[in-house]
């Protein structure tokens, strides 16, 4: 039997549906650019989600565990080869996402005989100043977009849109504010992607609060920071509970 353009189109459609359906359940990730550095945060169930890629690059994703892991390793491989061959300054998120990971994901997506790659990733690149910080959101089909100041990935387009709106609606540059604002945006994304929010209007404060309280009781809060000024050679670190618990205290009331 011949494989026609119609079959190809149909297969892409089915792959998209399959992948989107699986991504819907992923816990969102929120990114914020601060004077102190770039912050990524999420709430995970069992596995760590936020990772260091290179000196000024970090990554978090949603999707299949093994697909996230292969992409993480491919990103680290490219960054270290390039950083060693040329210099750390030549390792940029634009190059990583735009010319290495993106085309490879696109090829895999368009190949009807390869297993669908369930992946949505957020790459953050630390600049000298917050204005130079960049985020790249990379999708399973190789498409990517560049964001500044705030970024988010979630289980659906609508979830991501509303998360960004929530992040942009408030300001404040200290870590505590960024953590609380990020958690609220996380909850908006979680509610919308899982379809438990009202489609017509964004979730209300009570709903957001209940979602955060429940998620913190069931899961583990995780935040990664790329520090802008540090004496250490390693800029990336996961925040310690002592640093983020004060900001989370108001949601821990249910004990």
């Amino acid at each position: 039997m011949a494989y026609t353009p119609y079959d190809w189109h149909l297969s892409l459609q089915q792959r998209t549906e399959y992948i989107e359906e699986r991504l819907r359940g992923g816990s969102p990730v929120v990114g914020t650019s601060l004077a102190a550095g770039i912050l990524l945060l999420t709430i995970h169930q069992t596995q760590r989600k936020i990772f260091e890629i290179y000196d000024r690059l970090m990554f978090a994703g949603i999707g299949s565990q093994s697909d996230l892991e292969t992409t993480r390793i491919a990103a680290i491989d490219f960054a270290h080869r390039e950083g060693f061959l040329r210099s750390p300054h030549d390792v940029t998120a634009q190059r990583l996402v735009g010319s290495v990971l993106g085309p490879a994901l696109k090829r895999a997506f368009a190949d009807p005989f390869a297993a669908p790659f369930v992946f949505r990733g957020l790459f953050a690149e630390l600049g000298e100043t917050p204005a130079e910080d960049q985020f790249f959101v990379l999708n399973y089909d190789g498409e990517f977009r560049r964001l500044q100041r705030v970024a988010a990935i979630g289980g659906s387009d609508e979830a991501e849109r509303e998360m960004l709106a929530a992040l942009r609606s408030s300001s404040g540059d200290d870590l505590g504010t960024a953590l609380r604002r990020g958690l609220e945006a996380w909850a908006v994304g979680q509610l919308l992607a899982r379809g438990s929010g009202d489609e017509a209007q964004p979730p209300g404060p009570g709903q957001i609060r209940a979602t955060i309280e429940e998620a913190l009781a069931d899961g583990t809060f995780e935040a990664g920071l790329l520090e802008r000024t540090t004496r250490r050679s390693q800029r990336f670190r996961l925040l310690a509970p002592a640093e983020f618990e004060p900001a989370l205290a108001e949601y821990r009331s249910r004990g």
């Binding site: 292969t70 992409t71 491919a74 491989d77 060693f84 994901l105 390869a114």
Partner: peptide, 21 residues
């Protein structure tokens, strides 16, 4: 040449994992 992913290996869009740096 900058590093580029080669042919998909074992279903992954990326080249096989290096064992070490």
């Amino acid at each position: 040449r900058p590093w580029q992913p080669g042919a998909p290996a074992g279903g992954s869009p990326f080249p096989p994992r290096a064992r070490s740096f």
